[in-house]
Design a protein around this nucleic acid. Structure first.
Length: 113
DNA sequence: GAGGTGACTGCGA
DNA sequence: CTCGCAGCCACCT
């Protein structure tokens, strides 16, 4: 019944990420049930720049808190700029206190599910 | 219809 | 700590 594409589901979860928080591709993948296919999440973000409303892809990083997809932004350095604008510290393309700012949808959303 | 790609993750050394 | 290898699945050509 879910006529929605995998992309749309990823976009929805990403848009639910609270400001000042970040999450990982694997967390979203697990929440969507596609656990193990974290690549699909990142791949979905490939079209995040073409969907509406805009998707805060800058809040989505890899497991290490590294801005792996920053090069997909326009310009790439904008990703870090957006994160810092939300109060998130970024050092060497890495999120500081990533573990503290980590937002897991499979946990946070499950409480209000 | 088939093949290739990839903004990842986990484990072993 | 870092480096390398294999698995995973939806979308694109």
């Amino acid at each position: 019944m879910d006529r929605v594409s995998f992309y749309d589901q990823v976009y929805q979860v990403v848009r639910l990420i609270p400001k000042g928080r970040v999450t990982s591709y694997g967390a979203i993948a697990a929440y969507l049930g596609t656990k193990g296919s974290s690549r699909m999440v990142g791949y979905a973000m490939n079209g995040a720049s073409k969907v509406d409303p805009e998707v805060p892809a800058q809040r989505v990083v890899n497991r290490n808190g590294l801005l792996t997809g920053k090069f997909h932004f326009h310009p790439p350095e904008m990703m870090q700029q957006l994160l810092e604008d939300e109060g998130i510290e970024v050092s060497d393309d890495k999120i500081v206190n990533f573990r503290k700012l980590f937002w897991d949808p499979s946990i946070e959303l499950d409480l209000e599910r």
